[in-house]
């Protein structure tokens, strides 16, 4: 008995699964849970980049599971990390990086390289002149941003980085890496508002002016000790 029964049961499993998308858990509302395109949303207008509906899936998700990238997207979690970026401050346009080299020291595959900027007198000042990240080596581990004492290097969330060429475009220089602090505050609201980072920013802000003076060679004292300047802030790193 039962030739073909398995096939019918199999189809029922599939159909049941489809129907559960809409009917199970929160009343029969013909609505798909978690957001995204709905059942009667057959011809959704093409949303602009960044405005696509986000599909949030969790323990209650049943049935249809597909997130139709690029028309729908998965939520980007704040800690989601792809490549590092360097943050500059909106208020004055200064790079936060002091070229202390800690990110390069903790980088597991050794993809971060930088050189000190030199002041007018030729002495090094705590600012990066060159800053390179080879994204063909970077392993997106986030250690650089975790151990940066100046809140200068952060992990970006942009994953849409595909391109047709690598020899010119995959080594990111300082210019490619810079993002504004406002951008960072938008992508990482929780971290930006966290106590540690607020304290950190306060500290860095004080240091920043001194550095700028030094870089411009305005200060009477020549930039003889960039390292001690970096040290005190390095210790209270979180």
């Amino acid at each position: 008995m039962g030739y073909g029964r398995g096939i019918i049961v199999g189809h029922w499993v599939t159909l049941r699964r489809f129907l559960r998308t809409f009917f199970i858990g929160h009343g029969a509302t013909l609505k798909r849970r978690g957001g995204g395109h709905q059942l009667f949303d057959l011809w959704p207008g093409k949303k602009k980049r960044g405005e696509e509906p986000t599909v949030q899936q969790d323990a209650t998700t049943e049935g249809l599971f597909t997130v139709e990238y690029p028309d729908e997207r998965l939520p980007v979690y704040e800690r989601f990390r792809v490549l590092p970026v360097l943050v500059y401050d909106d208020s004055d346009g200064n790079v936060r990086c002091t070229c202390c080299n800690i990110c390069a020291k903790v980088c597991p595959p050794q993809c971060i390289w930088m050189t000190h900027a030199a002041g007018p007198d030729g002495k090094p000042v705590p600012l990066p002149e060159d800053y390179y990240i080879d994204m063909d080596v970077c392993m997106n581990c986030g250690l650089c941003s975790e151990y940066c004492p100046f809140d200068a290097i952060k992990m970006d969330q942009n994953f849409e980085l595909s391109n047709y060429e690598r020899h010119q475009s995959h080594i990111f220089s300082l210019q490619d890496l810079l993002v504004s602090s406002e951008f960072y505050a938008n992508t990482h609201p929780e971290a930006y508002a966290s106590d540690e980072q607020v304290v950190e920013r306060g500290k860095v802000a004080k240091k920043k002016d001194q550095r700028l003076q030094k870089a411009l060679g305005v200060g009477a004292k020549p930039a003889s000790n960039p390292k001690p300047a970096a040290k005190p802030a390095a210790t209270p790193a979180t």
């Binding site: 990238y69 690029p70 997207r73 998965l74 792809v82 490549l83 994204m135 063909d136 970077c138 392993m139 997106n140 994953f159 849409e160 980085l161 595909s162 391109n163 047709y164 060429e165 690598r166 995959h170």
Partner: peptide, 10 residues
């Protein structure tokens, strides 16, 4: 080239 380590499915 799809950068990332590893690139997410998206």
């Amino acid at each position: 080239y799809v950068p990332g380590c590893p690139p997410t499915p998206q």
